[in-house]
Amino acid sequence: MASIAQPSSGLGQTVRKSLPAYGFLSPWLIGLFCLTAGPVLASLYLSFTNFDLIQTPRWVGTANYERIFTNDPKFIAAMKVTFTYVLLSVPFKLAFALMLAMALNRGIQGLSIYRAIFYLPSLLGASVAIAVLWRQVFAGDGLLNAVLKWAFGYQGPSWISNPDYALYTLVSLSIWQFGSPMIIFLAGLRQIPQDMYEAASLDGAGPMRQMFKITLPLLTPVIFFNGVIQTIEAFKAFTPAFIVSEGTGGPVDSTMFYTLYLYLEGFAYLRMGYASALAWVLVVIIAFFTAFSFLSAKYWVHYDD
């Protein structure tokens, strides 16, 4: 009888077996620990110090947080701008994405071409180049005003240097990047079985009733997913405001996004400790929003399992 190799001690065997796996994972693991988890934890510590990027950080207790909540008008301004941005851009973007997804889902010829065209802004949108382009388009002597003048004889203001319009210009830039939620909506619409609509049409439901009673309820898991992702994205928005306002958050702080303020505190005014505290406040705000979304989900999201 052939002898069978004795298994070596269980734990050693397991470690030896998984070693190659960890080897292959190492680039990602190193990235996670050194570039993400490390700085995250470090920033938590730094938020309790007066770190200025040059001298050794000194512990200041909760002083940074106290200042944020009691004595920082810019924080209030940034919160206002950011919340306005989130509350406007997310619903409009989702509504726009959903409408286009529904239109595309009606079995149009050349669907993939339209899908690609509509997705293009999302690929370009977050890039610096497009933000620069938008600055050109919406400037006082920009393309938009040239068109308005030519078409209606109307001399428009500078859409980015007028504090009344600047934020809304950024909101429209964000809505324009509806591509990725649209693709996800499209996938969600495809999941709804055709016979639901056939049953509904036998029940006498017209297109509107089918949309409100069948499509939207069955799409709620996707709406929920897109909502959470887009809300987080909107809270984190940085590039467009940075480029369009040339890094100032102006005019008169009208585009002072939270992340932009945080960036200025940390890298312009070298108050890294304070900036870290701001970052952690944002984390808590996002966590709160997300938790709230998940808690509310059981009242309006329909999961079919």
């Binding site: 079985p193 016979d195 049953a199 049409s201 036998l202 069955l218 329909h302």
Partner: peptide, 20 residues
């Protein structure tokens, strides 16, 4: 004539119940 106006009712193989 649209399905709803034909005075018919249909039972689908997949049942096609509204899951929500």
């Amino acid at each position: 004539v649209p399905p709803a106006k034909r005075g018919i009712a249909m039972v689908f193989q997949s049942y096609a119940l509204y899951p929500h």
